[in-house]
Design a protein around this nucleic acid. Structure first.
Length: 291
DNA sequence: AACCCGTGGGG
DNA sequence: TCCCCAAGGGT
C-alpha cells in the first residue's frame, strides 16, 4: 500500500519499454549524465545521441573539457541549438575541476550552483546519476501528471508550487525506487503520453487517468503560442555562429556581413554573441570562436 | 514574470 | 505548408 496508485503499473511499463539510451547504461558516468541532461534541454533525443557520443569520446572527464578553449565546446556543439549551453557546459567543467576535484558533485545544492544547471537538471543528475530521491519535473512529467491526476490536457506554462508538491507527494520513499519512478514517468511522457496524439491505448494507467475518464477535454484558456523564429535575432545569431563554427580559424567581418542583409539587426546579433562570450572580436578586426 | 535564447522533424 | 514541439535556464 502506497500513496502512489500509479507506481506499480508505471514501473512495470518502464521495465519493458525503456529505451536503451547510452546515458542510462550501467557504465555511464555522472559526467555523461550531466552532459546528456544539458544537451537534452530543448533538443530531441534523436539529435542528441550522436553529439553525446562524440562529446564523451573527446572529453570523457570534465578535466579534459576544462583544458580546452571554450570555443572548442561551441564547435563540438554543432547544430544542437542554444549554443550558450555549450559555453555553460565548459564552465561547468572548469568549476568541477576547481571546486570539486574533477568529480561531478552529487548534492543537489552543488549541482544547482553549476552554470546552466537549474532545478530540473540538478534533480535529474542527482537522481539518475547518484540514485537520490528528488522530484524531477520536466515537460514530460508535468504533462503526465497534469493529465493523469488533474484531468487537464496541458500543464501551465511555467512549473507551479502545486506541481512540485504533487510530484513530491508521489515520490516513492526508497531513493532507488524514486529515481526509477522519475525516469519512468519521463519515458511515459516521451513515448506514450505525448503532447499531441497521445497513445492512450498503450498507457499503463489509462484506467486511472483523470483526463481520459473526463473524456479528454481539450485545453481551454489562452492558446499556448510558441515563439516566432524567422526574422528574429536568434535566426541571425544562428547564421553568424554557423559560419564561425565551420571556419577553421578567424573570419573577416565581410564574411559575416554576408549572412544577413539588414545591417542594424546583423550588428545587434553579432554584438549579442560577443556579449554572451560566444564570439571573440580580434584586434585584427576578424572574429573567432572564444579561446 | 515575461522574454530571450537555435534547430530540425513530424503532423 | 505551417505550426507545434523537444529531458530548460538565465535575466
Amino acid at each position: 500500500m502506497t500513496a502512489n496508485p500509479y507506481r506499480t503499473a508505471v514501473l512495470a511499463w518502464y521495465d519493458v519499454n525503456a529505451r536503451d539510451l547510452p546515458w542510462r547504461a550501467d557504465d555511464a558516468t555522472p559526467w555523461g549524465v550531466l552532459v546528456s541532461e544539458v544537451m537534452l534541454q530543448q533538443t530531441p533525443v534523436a539529435r542528441v545521441l550522436p553529439a553525446w557520443e562524440a562529446w564523451l569520446e573527446r572529453w570523457p572527464v570534465p578535466a579534459a573539457l576544462a583544458a580546452e578553449p571554450a570555443g572548442e565546446a561551441v564547435r563540438m556543439w554543432g547544430r544542437l541549438g542554444y549554443p550558450r549551453r555549450a559555453l555553460r557546459l565548459h564552465a561547468c567543467a572548469a568549476t568541477i575541476v576547481q571546486r570539486h576535484g574533477g568529480e561531478v558533485p552529487s548534492s543537489h545544492a552543488d549541482l544547482l550552483a553549476l552554470p546552466g544547471v537549474g532545478a530540473y537538471t540538478a534533480a535529474a543528475v542527482a537522481s539518475f546519476a547518484f540514485g537520490q530521491r528528488h522530484a524531477v519535473l520536466d515537460t514530460n512529467v508535468r504533462r503526465v501528471l497534469e493529465r493523469v491526476v488533474n484531468g487537464r490536457e496541458y500543464p501551465p506554462k511555467a512549473p507551479t508550487g502545486a506541481e512540485y508538491r504533487l510530484a513530491e507527494s508521489l515520490l516513492p520513499e526508497e531513493p532507488a525506487v524514486a529515481a526509477r519512478w522519475g525516469v519512468a514517468v519521463m519515458e511515459l511522457g516521451a513515448l506514450v503520453c505525448t503532447a499531441r496524439n497521445p497513445r492512450c491505448g498503450e498507457c499503463p494507467v489509462v484506467d486511472r487517468c483523470a483526463w481520459v475518464l473526463a473524456g479528454k477535454p481539450p485545453h481551454d484558456g489562452p492558446p499556448r503560442r510558441g515563439q516566432r523564429y524567422a526574422g528574429t535575432d536568434r535566426q541571425v545569431r544562428g547564421r553568424l555562429l554557423a559560419v564561425l563554427r565551420e571556419a577553421p580559424g578567424p573570419v573577416p567581418k565581410s564574411v559575416l556581413d554576408a549572412v544577413w542583409d539588414e545591417a542594424a539587426q546583423r550588428e545587434r546579433a553579432l554584438d549579442g554573441l560577443v556579449a554572451d562570450g560566444l564570439v571573440d572580436p580580434l584586434e585584427t578586426g576578424d572574429y573567432a570562436l572564444p579561446s
